[in-house]
């Protein structure tokens, strides 16, 4: 599903060149739930933005769902992002002046679905996250946990092949975090491929496999997949 080989990403100024990722290789198979961990500044978020086609890389190869993304133009990257990737952000990133259903509608509009198809998908994804009754609410009227569920519904609405989550529980209290994590696990059991960036080892345990990044390099790639922790496991 996601395969990066000897990938590098450097940020350059006139006087200094800083590598965020160096000789970075990772392979996430279809249906896997992978946690990417590491200390602050290790390159976790850079990995995620490159994986999500939000940022270019300098060297190496990146294959997403079998397609080499190097050299794709903005249109092609945007289409690939829209069709194959769902994002879940730490800060939820809902658009404040759109209500719940309009927020979920955003990627579907860019996909070019007609009105009936969009309504069906919005309804289904809201039911999936248990927020059907809140479709007309605005983000400010929802709790943090509910906002993150809306963000997950938005990510799911386009039926992506890959879910990328950046600290999805980072802005939530323990109870809400548990609910969101349960939802991610449920999605994984239903076949979703999930890559979750987190600096919290407790969260990483809930994933099927953990990839640890230090200074832009994978230092510990668990060879054998862990068993999925039970759905009712505690944080």
């Amino acid at each position: 599903m996601l395969k990066m080989t000897h990938l590098s990403k450097a940020y350059r100024t006139e006087v200094v060149e800083t590598y965020a990722l160096r000789d970075f290789s990772i392979h996430v198979r279809e249906g896997e739930f992978v946690a990417v961990t590491g200390p602050s500044g290790s390159g976790k978020t850079t990995f995620l933005t490159i994986a999500g086609l939000l940022e270019e890389f300098n060297g190496g190869e990146y294959q997403l769902d079998g397609a080499n993304v190097r050299g794709l133009n903005d249109n092609q990257r945007s289409r690939l992002r829209n069709e194959k990737i769902g994002f879940i952000f730490q800060a939820f990133n809902l658009i404040s002046d759109l209500n719940v259903q309009d927020n979920i509608d955003v990627p579907l509009r860019y996909r070019g679905f007609n009105g009936a198809e969009r309504r069906r998908r919005i309804q289904e994804s809201l039911e999936r996250v248990g927020l059907s009754a809140r479709s007309r609410h605005y983000p400010a009227e929802l709790s943090g946990g509910q906002q993150q569920r809306v963000a997950i519904a938005r990510a799911l609405a386009g039926s992506p092949r890959l879910l990328l989550a950046d600290e999805p529980t980072g802005n939530l209290d323990t109870q809400m975090a548990r609910g969101v994590l349960d939802l991610l696990e449920e999605l994984h059991r239903d076949g979703a491929t999930i890559v979750m960036v987190t600096h919290d080892p407790e969260l990483a345990i809930r994933a099927q496999r953990e990839v640890h990044i230090v200074d832009g390099q994978v230092v510990d790639l668990t060879a054998q997949p862990r068993l999925v922790v039970g759905a009712n496991a505690q944080l």
Partner: peptide
């Protein structure tokens, strides 16, 4: 810019 970044992440190309 934040909202625009979100739209880009959700699949909007530059032309959109």
């Amino acid at each position: 810019a934040g909202d625009i970044g979100v739209r880009r992440a959700l699949g909007a190309n530059r032309r959109a």
